[in-house]
Design a binder for these strands. Sequence first.
DNA 1: GTGCGAAGTAGGGAAAACCCCATTGTATAT
DNA 2: ATATACAATGGGGTTTTCCCTACTTCGCAC
Lengths: 217, 217
Amino acid sequence: MDKIRVILVDDHKIFRDGFRMLLQSFSFVEVIAEASNGNEFLSLIEDHQADIIFMDINMPQLDGVEASQKALEKYPDLKIIALTTFLDDDYLEQMLMAGVEGYMLKSAEIEEFEKAIVKVYEGGNYFSDEIVSLLSDKLNMLRKKRKKKDDLPEFTDREKEVLELICKGYGNKQIAEATFLSIKTIEKHKSSLFQKTGTYNTVNLVIYAFKHQIIKF
Amino acid sequence: MDKIRVILVDDHKIFRDGFRMLLQSFSFVEVIAEASNGNEFLSLIEDHQADIIFMDINMPQLDGVEASQKALEKYPDLKIIALTTFLDDDYLEQMLMAGVEGYMLKSAEIEEFEKAIVKVYEGGNYFSDEIVSLLSDKLNMLRKKRKKKDDLPEFTDREKEVLELICKGYGNKQIAEATFLSIKTIEKHKSSLFQKTGTYNTVNLVIYAFKHQIIKF
DNA sequence: GTGCGAAGTAGGGAAAACCCCATTGTATAT
DNA sequence: ATATACAATGGGGTTTTCCCTACTTCGCAC
């Protein structure tokens, strides 16, 4: 089997040196190139066919987020594992949205890197435990914020049902057909929804529902 | 040290039996109660002080999502680990938003459960690798959707202006007043928007705009 | 210049949404 | 048992939205 071709992107030479040594100790890995910032990396990938990129996030000139975005735009099949020094990382979401396949702390154990490379190479994902916790914390934060800021009105079962259908784009007639009720009844439920939410027409109600995340995208 | 008090919630007695045996094999765990559905669980927790809940998701009467939501509303410090049989789970997001501390496959290894209990008991989170991959896949889906968004139809200046006002909740009349145009003209622009977006009424158009992030919250 | 397509402007009439009001059923309190 | 409250169901009639069509203006090509 061919070796897995890896490119390192990090602005600290010392880290690259150490990390290269570490990776070369895996018999199945070959470090084919290195870059010290995003721009350098972008020109590198034109000439090198890599399987996996280890990408630092904080870098001069062009940071890991933008570099990853641009690289994945051109080569969507590229597999990038993001590296970060500390955990207080605001870029986590951005990197995930950019489409990286993994996200790890630089301080991870050797075995973790081995595991990550194999998993990502095989088409999977790898995330450090710490990263997963961080993500989950973010979700929890979101949840708590939601609870605090909206004391949402309470809806009856029918109202919830109607609201769901409204937010699917159904008109009164369609909702009536779907629920086996008369249009008039649907109108009444909507009327109640208007009152409870402080809205005054369907469009407003839909906007309200989206803003308060009563319905999902 | 006191044992970690655990409650099991699952509608299959056989699974509960097996799982209880498994948990009891950990010297530091004590299963203090069991429930076979959400309602039963909700009345249970009034009388039992539990450290960790293992919560099945698919259950009759009251499913794991709602049960967790209600329980956490009353006892926000409750630590819930969600259990699921298969991976094709639409409830993942809902459970996370409900605020569970962990999410695992029932088919997980014994060591995983041990690890999960300890981590969650100590205030952390635990998610099965498979769950993490699933989450990451979802993020990737989001990313791809964003990319698709790029081939949006092109709107004229007036259309963009009208769309913005629509998404603020304005009716045709209000838009007409705000733009110093006749209602009829607004209607025509909306009509064009319908055609370009493949929608057929204002509500649909608003949903379209939100989904494609044409307008911001 | 003349023609042609795209954006912007409306009117008339049909359809849907909306408001005010009435009736029924069910649960809770006194 | 009776009163109260409210969810759920609808009717009549007004307002708003929506579709089809038409006219003007502007830029651009020939």
